[in-house]
Amino acid sequence: MSRPEQVAPADVYYNEEEAHKYTTNTHIIDVQKRMTERAIELLALPEDSTCFLLDIGCGSGLSGEELSENGHVWVGLDLSPSMLNVALEREVDGDLFLQDMGQGVGFRPGSFDGAISISALQWLCNADQRGHVPHKRLARFFGTLYAALARGARAVFQLYPQTPQQMGMITAAAMKAGFTGGLVVDFPNSTRAKKMFLCLFAGVAAEVPKGLDGT
C-alpha cells in the first residue's frame, strides 16, 4: 500500500471521500487518538494547567478533540478544505485555519506553549507544485514555528518518513532553525506498532531568580 503523500498532494488527496473516512473508520480514529495522547505526553506541559497549543495538520480535528479533553485551548492548521469542513461539522473547539505549513505559520513571537502534529510533516518533503523546493519550505516552516513558540516550549511531530534521508533532511532543517531535540521511537522492534516522534525544544525556559531578602 502506498502512503497517501506518495499518491497526491494533501489538498487533493484528502477530498470529501477521504476526509469522511476520518470520521467513520474506527481503526483510524483509534490510532490517531493514541498517537495524539502520546504526543501530548511528550510535550511535558506543566501539570493541571490550560495551555495554548498549535495543531499542525489538524485535519478533521481528531487530535484537537484530544487536546480539548486534556483541558487545552488550541489552534489548528490544515491544507485540506474538505478535512476542515469535517472539523466544522463536528464542532471542534479549536480555531481553524486553511494554511500550507510550507508557507510558514503567521503567528506572533512566543504565542504558543507547545505544538503537535500527527502524520503531517512528511507532506512537506514533497514538491507538489512547480516552484516547491522541499528544503526551502522546511526552512520557512521551522523558522516561523520556532518564533511562534514560547521559549521552553516543545513541538512534537508524529511522522512517517519515507526514507532515512528524508528524516535527516527534516531534522537538519529543524536544527538550523534553532531547535534542539531528536527522534523518539516507540516499539522499534515491531513493524506494526512502531511509531516515530520528532521531539523539538524551542530554547530553554528559565525562572527569574529570587531577590535577596536581607536575612
Binding site: L77, L88, D95, L96, F97, L98, Q99, Q103, G131, R140
Partner: peptide, 14 residues
Amino acid sequence: THGVGNMLLIEDEV
C-alpha cells in the same frame, strides 16, 4: 469563512 481563516498565499508572496 465559517470562522476559518484562509492564510494561503500565492507563490510570489512566499
